[in-house]
């Protein structure tokens, strides 16, 4: 402790002085007012009662001096504070402006980026959707084609089957005229109605032999109704028949 005092006499002196001042202040303040929080000497006049004029004057002087000093200090501090505050405010404002600008820029950039991403995503999605749709369409088309091909194949089989039935039925009903010359051939166009009944027989190429032609017409009529597939959709293949009578 002594060591510190010896090394720092000035500081000790200041400290003692400061203590004294504080002691005085403390004594006065006891008389003044309990309202410490109220700023001294601004609005409320202090009424001295138990102090004599001189004392009072000197104290007053001192007090004034101190007050001025304090005032000055306070002002300086205030000024400084103010300046500081101003600086700070400016800096803050600047910072804020900067931040806001930055934020705005960032926001804009983000928005832009987002928009770009969105656009890209959407484009991608669209492209993908389109590709998928195209693929689906293609697949569907292929399926349809395959189905059509399969149907055609089935139809073909059925048509071939019933062609054979029709051929057989006509052959069973065709009485070739005995003794007609060899090499005769007669072609007829036959219209069927659903159910297989013969609606019309037309000779499109005569054999030149009336008996042969007549036997052909009779054969077609006798074979009526022609055997047709049960599926009505198949009738389209059999609506018109071209029959070539050509004995071998």
């Amino acid at each position: 402790m002594w060591k510190i005092i010896r090394e720092n006499p000035r500081a000790v002196l200041y400290a003692v002085l400061m203590h004294l001042v504080l002691l005085v202040l403390l004594v006065f303040s006891l008389d003044w007012t309990p309202k410490i929080s109220r700023p001294a000497g601004v609005k409320v006049p202090i009424e001295a009662k138990l102090i004599d004029q001189r004392q009072l004057e000197s104290v007053e002087e001192k007090k004034k001096e101190e007050q001025r000093k304090r005032e000055a200090e306070r002002k300086a501090v205030e000024e400084k504070k103010k300046a500081e505050a101003e600086r700070k405010r400016k800096a803050e404002a600047e910072a804020k402006r900067k931040a806001e600008a930055e934020a705005k820029r960032k926001a804009e950039a983000e928005a832009k980026r987002k928009a770009e991403v969105k656009r890209k995503t959407e484009a991608e999605a669209k492209r993908k959707a389109e590709a998928e749709a195209a693929q689906r369409r293609e697949a569907e088309l292929a399926l349809q084609q395959q189905l059509a091909a399969e149907q055609a194949e089935r139809d073909q089989g059925v048509v071939a089957e019933y062609t054979a039935y029709i051929q057989d039925k006509i052959q069973q009903n065709w009485l070739k005229p005995a003794g007609s010359p060899e090499g005769l051939s007669c072609t007829v166009q036959v219209s069927l109605i659903p159910g297989g009944d013969v609606a019309r027989v037309q000779i499109v190429r005569s054999s030149g032999d009336p008996l042969f032609d007549r036997s052909v017409e009779t054969a077609v009529h006798k074979a009526s109704p022609m055997p047709l597939p049960k599926d009505a959709a198949m009738f389209k293949y059999f609506r018109e028949l071209r029959l070539i009578f050509k004995p071998r």
Binding site: D155, Q156, Q167, L175, S215, R242
Partner: peptide, 21 residues
């Protein structure tokens, strides 16, 4: 038959009758 199936409606189904009674 193939011809006929390939173009239904376009051409009549052609059947050859080569045998008779």
């Amino acid at each position: 038959v193939l011809l006929a199936v390939a173009r239904p409606g376009m051409t009549a189904l052609t059947i050859e009758i080569t045998k008779g009674m």
